[in-house]
Design a protein around this nucleic acid. Structure first.
Lengths: 119, 119
DNA sequence: TAATTGATTAGCATTTTAGCTAATAAAACT
DNA sequence: AGTTTTATTAGCTAAAATGCTAATCAATTA
C-alpha cells in the first residue's frame, strides 16, 4: 500500500485497464482474462501485482476468485497528486527581470473540479 | 503527454521526488542533481523521461537549464484517476444471494475533497 | 582560443518487468 | 476416485529500465 508500489502498478497499461474494469464492482478472474489477448497467467500476474500494491482485494466463491478495486489505494495516489495541482507561487527563485505584481495569474484548470458535484 | 507515458514516469521514486521539488516553481538542473546521491547523468536521464512524458518543460538561461513542472500533465493523470474514485454501483454482476436494496452504501472518503476550498 | 562550468549523450552492466508454456492447486461434479 | 474448471505458480526468454563512467556539447570567462 505504499505510493511506490501503487504508482508502479499503475504504470502498466494492462493493469490500468483492469482497474478501469473493476470501477463499478468486483469481477471473477476469468472475466478479466477474457478482456485481454494475453495468456491467462500473464494477467494473473498483473492481478497479483495489483494485489500486492493494495489496489485490489480478492474473495473466493467456490472455484471463482472475485477481484475488487480497493479505492483507498487509489485515494492514496490522489492524495499524493493533489497538492501538486493547485496553483501555488509561480517561481521558487523570483524571476530576475520581471515584477511579480499584476502578473496575469494563469489559471490552471483542475479536472477534479468537474467531479465535485457528485460527492 | 499520454497517460501511458505519464503514469510510467511517475512510477519511479526519483522522478516523483523531482516532481515534488518542482511543485513551487522552476529549478536549474544542477539544483536538482544536488538533492540526490545519484550521479548527475542518472538524474539527467530521469529529467528527460519526465520531459518526454510532458511532465516538465525546460528553458535555457545561459549555461543553466531550468526545469518547470507542467501541471497540465498531472491534470491528465488526475482526470484518469478521478472517475475511479467516487462511489458507484457496488457490483457489476449482481450478487447471487443478496438483495441490493438497503445495502449500507459504504462511504469512501475522497481526499480531493480536502483541497477543494483552495480552488 | 583555451579553460571552466553546467548539462546531456554514448556505451556498458545489472536488475526488473512482461510475456510465454507447462505444471500445480483447489473446488465441483460424475 | 477421476475429471473438469478456474486460477495460480514455476521456469524460462526477451525487452526495458536504471545505474555508472567517459565523452561530448554549449555557454561563459580568462
Amino acid at each position: 500500500m505504499t505510493i511506490e508500489a501503487i504508482s508502479k502498478a499503475i504504470g502498466d497499461e494492462s493493469r490500468r485497464k483492469i482497474i478501469e474494469m473493476l470501477k463499478d464492482g468486483e469481477m471473477p478472474a476469468s472475466s478479466i482474462f477474457d478482456q485481454f489477448d494475453y495468456a491467462a497467467p500473464t494477467i494473473s500476474r498483473h492481478l497479483s501485482v495489483l494485489k500486492e500494491a493494495g489496489l485490489v482485494t480478492t474473495r473466493r466463491n467456490g472455484v471463482f476468485i472475485y477481484y475488487a478495486l480497493e479505492k483507498e489505494a487509489l485515494n492514496q495516489l490522489a492524495a499524493w497528486l493533489n497538492p501538486l495541482l493547485p496553483p501555488t507561487n509561480p517561481v521558487a527563485k523570483p524571476a530576475p527581470k520581471e515584477r511579480a505584481a499584476r502578473a496575469p495569474k494563469v489559471k490552471i484548470e483542475n479536472p477534479f473540479d468537474k467531479f465535485q458535484s457528485e460527492f
